[in-house]
């Protein structure tokens, strides 16, 4: 099992805390890209044929497989619409975000 990643922002309080080598110490999960979205994908699980194509073509790794079903992570989904376009059974609808 892979180690659990945390979405935390790193703030260096003083210069001494900055690592000597310029290397990454955190991951980009703190950057919640869901705010970029204008339209959101909604999956109709009744008509889903479980092909995994939406999972395969997600550039943001925002679709995961849980209990053999695709689940969209709205925290990171940028709303590009690739999943809806590629879905062979057309069961993903792009719904406008409410303000």
């Amino acid at each position: 099992m892979k180690k659990e990643k945390q979405a935390k922002e790193i703030i260096f309080k003083s210069e001494k805390e900055v690592p000597l080598m310029p290397m990454s110490v955190g991951n980009m999960l703190w950057n919640k890209t869901g705010g970029w979205r204008n339209i959101r994908p909604v999956i109709d699980l009744e008509n889903c044929i479980q092909c995994g194509i939406c999972w395969k073509f997600c550039p943001d790794v925002a679709i995961s497989i849980e209990n053999e079903r695709p689940v969209v992570d709205y925290v990171y989904c940028k709303g590009c619409g690739l999943c809806a376009e590629e879905c062979p059974s057309k069961c993903i609808a792009m719904v406008e975000e409410e303000k």
Binding site: T33, K56, R69, L82
Partner: peptide, 24 residues
């Protein structure tokens, strides 16, 4: 529900969410 999902690629991800690529 009983149907197993068959994925054509391995499920392990080495790229995380939250990166700064444009949409699509």
């Amino acid at each position: 529900k009983e149907k197993k999902m068959t994925l054509s690629l391995p499920e392990e991800e080495l790229m995380g969410s939250g990166h700064r690529a444009c949409q699509g």
